[in-house]
Design a protein around this nucleic acid. Structure first.
Length: 502
DNA sequence: CGGTAGCAAGCTACCTTGCTACCGGTGCTGTAGT
């Protein structure tokens, strides 16, 4: 009862959404908690409310600067001023001020990278962190092994902060990812609160097309007929821009491309315009989506397949937050899996590069108790990308021990890299298996997340095709991609049927 | 793997064809003074 009073007092809500109270109760009982709650169920309340009960600071690890800024602004609007985002947005002078009076803040948002800086940890150690929160905790597993290695240091940091009570929040995590999160954070006993990942109002549709041109034409067709707004996902910044221009030139919709290559301000502007309904369609790379709270997204089209089922689920999960019927369409051409495979291989250093680097180390460097000193010239000569080089630095630093030989070190690192590529390829293969499968797509996704489908939804997927079959039996329409007008009618019928079934 | 940019050869006088090399996604970040 007491929790409801706090909820009303500080947030103005009368009742909790699914899972919130359970998570908060678990934390207040002192249990480390892994909460898997669907997006849009107010995950941030799960750490904000305990802040009014627990003494000391709430430290929230967040993956994106923009996400932190949003949270801080939102909390300020709710009247909570003791909030700060400790990151590189904060000018140095101000950052020092904040660091000198951290005690005045109740909620501290921080990136894993900043959290890895010894100077920052020393400051944080002076506080009493009563709750350590990892927001979007699947990033530990998705990014921690290579792209953002600081994600894998959170366990050490937790320990340095005195093993505080911990909350890991995510919307999509397989059993394996949940295990990664728990192991990486060094948690022993964990209370898991999990809700289904199924989104019954999102239908699945996979369509095979011969090539690039067909895909492009199909996108034009689909976007002109589908109810908007929507997002189209690409694995290439250039193609995202091309398609956005094409859609605008043809007068089909207000579209803009969104990817990591754009200026930070431009990105914020485009996202805002989309949220405010000034844009119908975003042609995006995987950079788009985290923290986008838009209720009425009606379709998600995949021009390229994502690199794993988790990413796919996260991306399509941005549709239909309002509960109305929405559709996820994936366009596939044979051989599409080659692009993600190339991306996966290119992210990690190759075995050849590793061998070369260790040759250089053996020829030119002396080992001392400080470990291996890597000269940055080697990066350029060895043709390492920024990410590959950082992975090498991390691995060498992390796995070097004075009592192992340099050859052993090289071999362990090579093995690690090979294993990572094997896992990534297997994720891509899983994705392709789903695309090619002839059975119910929803059932397969749930199976992938170790869930079973309990009740069949009326608008499921192209494989279930209940509505499609009944449609065809009228002898008029089919969902073939050659039937221009039919598609619109088909969707109209989908929407009508679902309204009736509600 | 598949698309494309850039260049050279081939064929005929400006355009086509063919070869090669290359690219493809996600984000964070301490500083100054001794």
């Amino acid at each position: 009862m007491e929790l409801e009073i706090l909820l009303e007092k500080y947030f103005g809500y009368h009742s909790f959404k699914t899972g919130q109270k359970e998570v908060i109760t678990s934390l207040l009982e002192g249990k480390h908690t892994l909460a898997m709650l669907p997006t849009g169920t107010g995950k941030s309340l799960c750490y904000q409310l305990p802040g009014y009960i627990l003494k000391g600071q709430i430290l929230i690890v967040s993956p994106l600067l923009s996400l932190m800024q949003d949270q801080v602004e939102q909390m300020n609007r709710f009247g909570e001023k003791r909030v700060v985002a400790l990151n590189s947005f904060l000018p140095v002078e101000e950052r020092n001020k904040v660091l000198n009076r951290l005690n005045n803040y109740k909620y501290i948002f921080i990136s894993p990278e900043m959290l890895a800086i010894p100077f920052i940890i020393r400051r944080l150690q002076k506080l009493t962190v009563s709750l350590f929160v990892v927001d979007e905790a699947h990033c530990i597993s998705q990014w921690g092994f290579d792209f953002r290695p600081d994600y894998s240091k959170l366990g050490d940091i937790r320990q340095k902060l005195g093993n505080p009570l911990t909350l890991a929040l995510t919307a999509t995590a397989t059993m394996k990812v949940r295990e990664d999160i728990i192991a990486s954070l060094g948690l022993e006993v964990v209370n898991k609160i999990e809700s289904t990942i199924d989104r019954p109002n999102i239908s699945f549709y996979v369509e095979e097309l011969a090539n690039f041109d067909e895909k492009q034409n199909r996108i034009v067709e689909l976007v002109s007929k589908l109810q908007k707004p929507g997002i189209i996902y690409f694995s290439s910044k250039k193609i995202a821009e091309q398609v956005a221009s094409l859609l605008v030139e043809k007068g089909i919709c207000q579209a803009m491309a969104y990817h990591g290559g754009l200026e930070q301000n431009t990105r914020i502007l485009i996202q805002q315009q989309f949220i405010n309904d000034q844009l119908d369609v975003i042609c995006a790379t995987s950079a788009f989506g985290m923290g986008v709270n838009k209720e009425n997204i009606r379709f998600i089209i995949h021009y390229h397949m994502p690199m794993q089922m988790e990413s796919y689920l996260q991306e399509i999960g941005r549709a239909g937050r309002d509960g109305s019927p929405s559709i996820a369409i994936l366009l596939y051409s044979p051989g599409d899996e080659q692009l993600p495979i190339q991306l996966a291989e290119g992210e990690l250093p190759s075995v050849q590069q590793i061998d070369w680097l260790f040759q250089q180390i053996m020829q030119t460097q002396q080992l001392d108790n400080g470990g291996i000193n890597l000269h940055s010239d080697l990066r350029d000569y060895g043709g390492f990308t920024e990410i590959q080089w950082r992975i090498m630095e991390e691995l060498i630093h992390h796995r070097y021990k004075p009592d192992i030989s340099i050859n052993t070190l090289r071999d362990t690192i090579s093995e690690f890299v090979k294993e990572r590529i094997r896992i990534k390829k297997s994720n891509i293969f899983q994705m392709r298996k789903w695309i090619e499968s002839t059975t119910c797509r929803r059932e397969l996704i749930l199976k992938y997340f170790e869930e079973t489908l309990t009740s069949k939804v009326s608008l499921c997927c192209d494989r279930c095709g209940i509505h499609l079959e009944s449609y065809e039996s009228n002898g008029k329409l089919s969902l073939g991609r050659h039937s221009d007008g039919d598609w619109k009618d088909y969707l109209a019928k989908i929407l009508l049927n679902s309204e009736m079934s509600e």
